[in-house]
Design a protein around this nucleic acid. Structure first.
Lengths: 186, 186
DNA sequence: GAACAAATGTACTGATCTGTAAATAAAGTC
DNA sequence: GACTTTATTTACAGATCAGTACATTTGTTC
């Protein structure tokens, strides 16, 4: 039972795709950057698309785990955890390797609504929506689902803007707006 | 004085890039889809990158003109024009060919901060920020620049989400949030 | 109608793309 | 130690990538 080789490949491929984009990253580049031979890659994944889907699955798992844990570390009540989401974003934006949201980029490169990569990216956002909506409900806020959608609009906007303008400032702009919306829903 | 050939090429290339992405669109595809010969293309533009930059310039001009006019058509006062921005977004999202923001996608494919395509995409967003900030100032709202940044976060978030989920609903979610933020700033 | 510029078709370069073939080298399992 | 699985190297196929050379056609201007 080898847990490693395949997972190791996905993990390394994630870094390269995130840094370099999907179309711009060729399988040959992955061979040199990961040290995994080409034949091994096509042994584990039938196509490049399959590899990308595996990468996105790993990214989804990592990112949601990271974000949820960070929100819980920073605040005790569901209400404050919602607000802490934007502090977590700021931490992310400050990381040297920050390059925006991998799912937004994936859906930008694979635009067809029925493309597996696009569908999987949308699924990631849907799961975030469910979690944030649940928190808003636990916090006893009015219209929890509508509020969750609004908070996530702020989140996506902040990510895109932070990436475009190379500053972490959008996190605090979004936090201020989120705080106002939450207070109105109390 | 020929206004047409070059502009016509840029206009047609815009459609293909918008629909198909940048890396995924080869010069040969542009040849067949635009009907402009390859030699003519490289007569007008030294490289593919130069063509993309021209496409983004045209897109910036078209989009800002369209948005500003739409906002003015829909509302008389600066305050209401800010809110009308989200109705205009909804009209856009409903268009059959809607595929998200071309500048977000460009910056997703050309990620380096010092890349000309990335810089030009950021410039588009900066000009929107200036215009919206000006409107907020004319409307006599508190902290007009901070408010403008927040409204634009909602706008970017709505565009990304509408593209990912294939629904125009984010426009109204963003509008409701924007209305709340504007009322708080009055 | 001559002269010049712009646009064209065709064919090509060399590099890179995704994906494969075949033969070899490790590695664990019985 | 034989057997099976897994990973490896090397080389390749066929398509497509950005960009170019060259000769031809078209259109405008004088």
């Amino acid at each position: 039972m080898r847990p490693s080789k395949r997972d190791e490949l996905v993990q390394k491929a994630l870094k390269v795709f995130y840094r370099n984009g999907f179309h711009a990253t060729g399988m040959d580049m992955l061979v040199t950057e990961t040290g995994v031979s080409k034949t091994s890659m096509y042994n584990h994944f039938r196509t490049k698309e399959d590899l990308i889907l595996a990468v996105l699955r790993l990214r989804d798992e990592h990112f949601r785990n990271w974000l949820y844990r960070r929100m819980e570390e920073r605040a005790d009540t569901p209400r404050d955890q919602l607000i802490a989401m934007f502090d977590a974003l700021e931490d992310w934006f400050e990381e040297p390797g920050f390059r925006g949201c991998m799912f937004i980029k994936a859906s930008a490169e694979y635009q067809n609504a029925d493309h597996a990569i696009h569908i999987q990216s949308a699924e990631h956002k849907r799961m975030l929506q469910v979690h944030v909506g649940e928190l808003a409900r636990k916090a006893g806020l009015k219209n929890p689902d509508a509020l969750a959608r609004q908070l996530l609009l702020l989140k996506e906007g902040a990510i895109v803007t932070a990436h475009l303008q190379h500053t972490q400032a959008p996190a605090q702009d979004a936090k201020a707006a989120a705080l106002a919306l939450i207070e109105l829903a109390e």
